[in-house]
Amino acid sequence: MISVKNLVKSYGHGKPAVKGVTFTIGKGEIVGLLGPNGAGKSTIMKIITGFLNPSEGEVLVDGLNTIDNPIEIKSKIGYLPEKSPMYQDMIVYEYLKFISEIRGISNEKADDAIQSMIKLVALEKVASKRISELSNGYKKRVGLASAMIHDPEILILDEPTAGLDPNQIIMFRKILRKLSEKKTIILSTHVLSEIEAMCEKVIIINNGEKVADNSIQELMKTYDKEQFIDFVVEGESLLSIEDEISQIKGAWKIEFEKKEGKNQFRFKALISEGSDFEKNLKSNSNNWKLVSSEIKKANLEEIFLKLTSQGEDNV
C-alpha cells in the first residue's frame, strides 16, 4: 500500500534530514515509526502526506507517486501533524464542517460524518466552543476527528499522544485500537510503550537512516543476545561517579536510572553477550563501591537505545 524508496530529504544546504530510507507498509498494518527527537520521522511523514517533496527517491501510495498524483493520494490519507495545528478562532463544529467541505463530503452526509466523529472522540461537551479555549487533550481529539472525518484508508499520526496526560493517553489508545481494525496506520513516537501497546511492526529511524524494520517479536529475536546490567553503586557525588563509570569499557551505553536511598545510585549499562563490562565494573571502583549488579535480557527499550546510540558507545 505504501512504498518508500531510497528517500532522501535535505533542507537547504545542510545535512540531509533523511538519508536513503526504504520500507513498505501493507494494507491494514499498524506501524510505529520510532526514533529519538530529530531523527527524521516527521520529515518522512510530511513527504508521505505530500506536504514536502523528497530531494531524492520516491513514495508510492497504491502505486501512485506523491509528486505526480498529490490530490488522489491526499484524499486517501488522514493526517494529524505533531502540534495538531488548527484554526484557533473557529468553533469546533464549524472547523469540522470546513474540513468535511474541503474533503468533498456532500452537504447531506457532512452532518452525519461530523456527528459520528464527535461521538467517536467524545467531543460532545466542546462542540460549540472555540478551539482556542480547548485543553491540549481536546485539541488533539479535534485534530484526530479532522484527520478521520473522510474515513481515509490511511491514517498518519505524528506524535499523537505528546502533551497528553495519562488518562487521555489511555483514551487515545482505545480510539486507535478501534480504528486499527480497518485502517492502515502509521504513528510516530519516541515513547516505546506506545509502540508496544499499539503496533504490529516497528520501523526505527536514527539520524535520518533506517536502523530496524521488523515486527516487535522479530526484533526481539534478532537482538536476543543483547543484555543489560542493572547495577547500584554507593558514593558521595553522582557527577564524579557518572564521570568515572562512563570511562569503563565494554558497554554500548551507560545510563543513570535513579537515586536509591542515601548515596546509592542505580545505573543501566547496555552490553552484548560475552562483554567484560561487569568484570571491569567490579575491578574499577575509586570514589564509589559496587553494591549490586545483575545481568538481564534486553527488552524493546534497551534494543531501541542500542539502535539509536550510534557513535555514543564506549565498547
Binding site: 490519507i77 493526517y79 474541503i102
Partner: peptide
C-alpha cells in the same frame, strides 16, 4: 501557526 501543514495536505 503551522496550519499551512493542514491546508496543503488537503486534496486541493
Amino acid at each position: 501557526e503551522g496550519t499551512i501543514e493542514m491546508l496543503f495536505t488537503f486534496p486541493i
